[in-house]
Design a protein around this nucleic acid. Structure first.
Lengths: 207, 207
DNA sequence: CACTCATTGACCAAATTAGTCAATAGTAAT
DNA sequence: ATTACTATTGACTAATTTGGTCAATGAGTG
């Protein structure tokens, strides 16, 4: 199907993928411009339509591609037998920050796809069972050892507080490196900082 | 300056403001369409340019208008002599949720304006001293009684955890009512739910 | 040389853009 | 009823942008 595209040097593949996902993530399907994509990717107009025969196919290719990347990476972590919710979330966040280094707009793209309203792709997106993401989310919440939490606190609140803290932290990291080179997203600095927050959460929310 | 506009019935004013701020918030200055704005506001093309003589003026009008609204409402709360950070944040969040009821896209618009890249408005936006927002932010963090916090935890982490929790909570509320009528954002339901999270935070982070 | 595949960019009809302006509707005063 | 005034309309424009095509060229292989 897209074998022609995958025969390209990976550097060129990623230039195209990144250009396209950036445009779709920021403007949505209808307002995204294929002209902008080819300009950002540094390829000619004809070439884009040589690989993906129209705009819709390109969008759905990206959706399928990224969903697969996401599932492949995250499923082992959220399915695994880690019962410590804080540890589980830590693993997932590290994975997420690693992925952002490679595909900085992937998470935006996928979460926007969930709310995409363009009639041209709505049906195809629905067929692709967006619920997969929801299901994965619920897996994250399952198999948790609630006995680790302090006795006198509301578990539901605690879970949300942990999720929102890590979400806020990831967003802060993404903001920091916006515009800068992506290599600046340095795990050796980020993880200890993240652990500072996780330590506080562990000290206060766990027994 | 905009006296003609302010002589309109407030219902019509708000229809226009909401339509415009929605479009700018979602597409940025360059990609926002005045055609879409008039369509959404239910007015004719000519009328919009009768009140705001061009697209740039309309954008800057909205920026000034909303910044004033924001400062007027928030400054008393963040300047006040409340030393309890949790209470301070609670007040600010309630205010924020109230404002979202009236201008659902205001916060998006203002935070995007901060990163607006269009050459046509960049300079004027800079002149308007975006730092005001940053300053207000630092006021929120000042005059805090740190003795309220538990002894053995990292204060900086605690402050961020509180902010991120309330940010996550507000976003969750905004998601819930997306598409639905705005009246559904019901304070009588929301505030108790918010207090559930704040109680957990107070119990764990405070001494 | 011939054959194949990757790649280009000028080109197209259709749509959309910000902004204009002559015409009309509405209101109030005379 | 007439005048004067403003609010409001929407057809119109020139310029740009849209998704997509296609004949031509380049590059590599045998």
């Amino acid at each position: 199907m897209y074998s022609k595209f995958f025969n390209l040097r990976t550097e060129k593949q990623e230039r195209i993928i990144n250009a396209a996902v950036y445009e779709f993530a920021n403007k949505g399907f209808d307002n995204a411009s294929t002209n902008e994509i080819v300009k950002a990717a540094g390829i000619s107009k004809g070439l884009l339509f040589h690989y993906f025969n129209n705009k819709k196919d390109l969008y759905l290719f990206l959706y399928d591609y990224f969903l697969e990347v996401l599932m492949e990476k995250f499923n082992p972590k959220i399915d695994g037998d880690e019962k410590d919710f804080l540890k589980k979330c830590r693993d997932v966040t590290i994975l997420k920050l690693d992925l952002i280094k490679i595909y900085p707009d992937m998470f935006n793209f996928l979460s926007n796809a969930h709310f995409e309203e363009s009639v041209e792709i709505k049906d195809d997106l629905d067929k692709r069972e967006k619920k997969m993401i929801t299901e994965s989310f619920s897996k994250l919440y399952s198999n948790i050892d609630y006995n680790l939490f302090a006795e006198n606190i509301d578990i539901e609140s605690a879970l949300k507080i942990i999720m929102w803290t890590l979400e806020g932290f990831s967003n802060q990291q993404q903001q920091k490196i916006k515009g800068k080179s992506l290599i600046n997203l340095n795990s050796e600095e980020i993880i200890p900082e993240m652990d500072k927050y996780l330590d506080t959460l562990r000290k206060t929310l766990y027994r």
